[in-house]
């Protein structure tokens, strides 16, 4: 039986977190809601977690997902998290999460009020499967899902990617690109998807 998963998240780190001003994201995300900037999402609200150290910063809440300028582990980046979706094919779930994260990151790069101060580093992209029922953080899950993720990365322009997985089994299963020979920029990534 082939594996089915749900609740995939993708984080695209900032190339340089020095330019990150979380305050700016309150009006930006409100504008995204007002102007329905993200396709396929019912955008609902902005959650302000700037007070949480190394937390999710400012979050754009959608009905079935959320987007955050997240600093978990001290690594700032755009995080996309699917909170709710039916069980499905991993390749499709990865592709969707990658696409949504890249779309939001690209919108940020092009955000006029930020004046180009933020760019993203796709070469350190991280993927997690939050659902512990479908994908517990075990070697078996890695065996099942890593080839699918690798294949997708290769298809969208990554080459020579070295992937690492969180050692702490309490964390969700995930694969982060530790190093790679080549990675597409956001525009190329979106085109390839």
């Amino acid at each position: 039986m082939s594996i089915q998963i749900q609740q995939v998240s993708v984080k695209i780190p900032l190339a340089s977190p020095k330019g990150l001003d979380l305050d700016a994201f309150i009006p930006i995300f409100h504008e995204w809601i007002r102007e329905h900037r993200i396709d396929n999402e019912l955008l609902i609200d902005v959650a302000d977690y700037r007070h949480v150290p190394n937390g999710p910063g400012v979050m754009l809440i959608a009905n079935e997902a959320h987007y955050a300028m997240d600093s978990e582990g001290g690594k700032a980046g755009l995080l996309f998290c699917k909170r709710r979706d039916p069980l499905g094919d991993p390749e499709a779930a990865f592709r969707h999460a990658l696409g949504q994260a890249a779309t939001a990151a690209r919108l940020i790069e092009k955000e006029a009020s930020l004046e180009g101060s933020l760019t993203f580093d796709t070469s350190r992209i991280q993927m997690r499967v939050l659902s512990r029922l479908t994908a517990p953080n075990t070697p078996a899950t890695r065996s099942a899902l890593e080839p699918i993720w690798r294949q997708l990365l290769a298809a969208v322009g990554f080459s020579g990617a070295e992937l690492i997985s969180p050692a702490d089994s309490r964390q969700p299963f995930g694969l982060a690109v530790h190093s790679c020979a080549a990675a597409p920029d956001l525009a190329a990534l979106l085109t390839a998807l």
């Binding site: 959650a47 977690y49 079935e64 959320h66 998290c81 909170r83 512990r132």
Partner: peptide
Amino acid sequence: LADLAEEYSDSILHVTTRQEIQLHFVHIDS
């Protein structure tokens, strides 16, 4: 609680003034 916050909510556990935990943005079906 941490797992549940991560999977169904926004990874935030909120402590209330009545010594409980609240998770937000949870779907009723979950």
